[in-house]
Amino acid sequence: MRPLALILLLSGVAAPSAALAYAEFQKHIQATSGRNVNCAVCHAHGDGPDGVKPGQVGSLTPAEVDRLNRARIAFEPGQTVDSPILNAFGNHIVFTVGKRQLLALKNDPGALAGRLQETDLDRDGISDGQELRDGTHPLDAQHGDPWKLMKVNTRRYGLHLVLLAVATFLGLYGLGHILRWFGRTAEAAMQGLRDRGRDEP
């Protein structure tokens, strides 16, 4: 999939013009992670903010435009915003980094991930920054680097796994013995049947 994504990038069609505002991040993620990503990492719509579909600028109600404008002037970090064209992760970036630095980071898109090491919005055990590096979705607990998810989940569900292993072991042990017992008993019963058959006629 990686070369395919690159081809698309070179031909300039992967990113619809609408989303070009932050295409640096998209390009960087795709190049470093090898995974194809779209604007839905941070935006409400996968095709980015421009357009008339739900979650795009053209579809906003006046109240939402108001929220959008408030988000657009959140230049310094630490301001809670609720932009209608961003998803929870996008709003979280604005909160953590602030608009000013975010715009500056366009020249160094890899550095954004480092600023988001502390949080894990989908609580899947992989920090938002790491998910950004891996090209996986920071808001979907089912989505993450498979290997990292496995390590996290093995720890998280350790008790379940141990109990399941114990159950499996006990089951195998019990099954072994019960079948041996049943085999013996059945053999005895069969022998009994044959003996009776011999006696009767």
């Binding site: 159950a167 072991f169 089951g171 042990y173 019990g174 013995h177 019960i178 017992w181």
Partner: peptide, 16 residues
């Protein structure tokens, strides 16, 4: 065998 088997299966059954 029956006792061991029943114990094992009961344990596994209860856990599962």
């Amino acid at each position: 065998d029956l006792v061991k088997g029943a114990l094992g299966l009961a344990g596994a059954g209860v856990l599962l």
